[in-house]
Amino acid sequence: MSDPEDIQRRFEELEAGRILGDLDAQERLEWEELAKDPRCRADLSLEFTAAAIETEFLPPRAEPLPATTLEHLRRDMARFVSPPPAGSPAERRFVWPGMFSNPQTAWAVAALFAILFAAKALLQFPANGTVKPAVATLSPEEARDILLRQAGDLVQSDFKGTDAFGQMSGKVIWSDQLQEGYLTLTRLAANTPSVSQYQLWIVDPSRDEEPVDGGVFDIPPDRETTVIRIRNPLAVNDPKAFVITLEQPGGVVVSKQEVVVAIAKTS
């Protein structure tokens, strides 16, 4: 086989087999040899063709990704971005018009998202307690205000206290993209941490029938308004409600909802 057209034809057939995943060992060796031959031209056209066919035939997946996979992906992606130049326009823009519609801008924005994710991950999973991300120095009020200014997908809802807590008011803000949120609670009765603690629950039917733990917190006696950062160990994708309960010190894994303090519905 010395005709360049024959060689190219054979190479393309093997290339198609490689893309379809059906090369046997001998064919694989032949493909490797031909791939080095300058008379053989390779591009991505067959791979794109196979991908276009496969994605066209695939039925849409109804259920969300497993929570463990989502967690791994979110932690993993922070390793692949670097900080955008300080003061660049992208740093101040939190628009996401389409991931690849303008790759440079979109990925600069993505980099900032990932930095915030990384900071959050470090806050939740400190490495031997030696890593102190910059955001750790922010007060909850400051961090909340930054989120209010920057998140493009902010969910906001007002808390309504139950009968025994009717005097309280509050607001929750939450960003799915950043997996970050805050409670601003006013006139909620101070608790004695050694006796009981408040606990937040996030209702997200898209991920689980059971509410997700949003963290245990205290209300100090000397402040009318307290800002609490939501600390969700599991990913939340589409919260429908936020519920505050009063629980034993340290909180509980599953709430009996004996003392429901307040509820904020997002839809």
């Binding site: 695939l58 998202f113 994710f117 799915d176």
Partner: peptide, 20 residues
């Protein structure tokens, strides 16, 4: 990136599951 995972995670999972 978060949006990308949300939008295409299911697609990637389906392809991987089909082959693997």
């Amino acid at each position: 990136m978060q949006d990308c995972i949300s939008r295409y995670g299911g697609l990637v999972w389906s392809i991987a599951e089909r082959h693997v």
